[in-house]
Design a protein around this nucleic acid. Structure first.
Length: 271
DNA sequence: ATGGGCACCTGGCTGC
DNA sequence: TGCAGCCAGGTGCCCA
């Protein structure tokens, strides 16, 4: 479910609510996430203060005094900040209870999410080590995109979705970004010009920024930490708009399948 | 090295 | 109403 804007919206909500408070208890309701939650995690976390909440790609990083919690929302996960004792709902997987009287609750119907803990530099964790630069980092620029696409035959949509090449862009925003950059999702990556790469970098940043400002996109499960849905859905140009008129030129939006995922594009605006 | 396909899991919707 | 089939926001891993 969540791509970078939803994860960033979640990060901001959590940080505001939890920064500085101390973990009382990790209550695990179901350890069977994408990787089973480590058995002895509760003892390791109890008593630690939450110093800050960071983000790397779509991972949330909860900085504690002695280590870092690495949390991924998967396809259908969401985090909410609740008052202690709030009734449990179906698919609640764990609660991180704080001494402030607030609980951080993870709900994830499909259980594709994950929770890890490390005492080391989280950037060196096996799940984070290979990730591409952050989209808002200066190192993610037209030259970078041009360089990594020179020898690739894969469609540009696939490159946007590959976390080792580009981070933060998932299936919704890949289509949205390509519309904004006026590039057809099927274009072979190595056929991109330097100017295409420059437009693409700008499009990634503007699309992600606009979605963050709207609190993310809610389609099925996603809610922010306050329980409210994101409002970017109304601003989508192409995603799940097949057959509807392009907001730029009026041509019907087309839907195709790439790598078993749906792509949406305007056959008139994108080449 | 690259890229394609599968796997993990539950639920909602469609169409017979 | 029931049920089969398909689809859904991610990504690690195996194989050619």
């Amino acid at each position: 479910m969540p791509e970078l804007p939803e994860v960033e919206t979640t990060r901001r909500g959590i940080e505001r609510a939890l920064r500085g408070s101390r973990i009382k208890e990790l209550r695990i309701y179901d350890r069977r996430l994408r990787w089973p939650i480590e058995q002895h995690l509760p003892e390791q976390l109890a008593g630690q203060q939450a110093l800050a909440v960071g983000r790397r790609a779509k991972y949330l990083l909860l900085n504690l005094e002695r280590g870092t919690l690495i949390l991924h929302l998967g396809m259908s996960g969401s985090l909410r900040v609740l008052h202690a004792g709030a009734p449990r709902l179906k698919h609640d997987q764990f609660d991180l209870a704080f001494d402030s009287g607030l609980d951080l609750r993870f709900n994830d119907p499909r259980r594709f999410g994950s929770l890890h803990y490390t005492h080391e530099d989280p950037a060196q964790h096996r799940l984070l080590r290979w990730l591409a630069p952050e989209p808002f980092d200066a190192s993610f620029d037209a030259d970078y995109l041009w360089r990594i696409t020179r020898t690739r035959r894969a469609a540009i949509k696939q490159v946007l979705m590959n976390g080792r090449l580009v981070t933060g862009v998932g299936n919704i925003y890949a289509s949205e970004v390509l519309l904004r950059a006026r590039i057809n999702p099927r274009r072979a990556s190595r056929r991109l010009t330097l100017k295409d790469c420059a437009r693409l970098v700008r499009a990634v940043r503007t699309a992600l920024n606009a979605a963050i400002r709207a609190g993310g996109t809610s389609l099925r499960n996603y809610v922010g930490t306050d329980g409210n849905p994101g409002e970017f859905r109304q601003k989508l140009y192409v995603y799940e708009r097949d057959g509807k008129p392009c907001r730029v030129c009026g041509t019907p939006i087309r839907k195709i399948t790439q790598g078993a995922r749906s792509s949406y594009f305007c056959p008139h605006c994108q080449h």
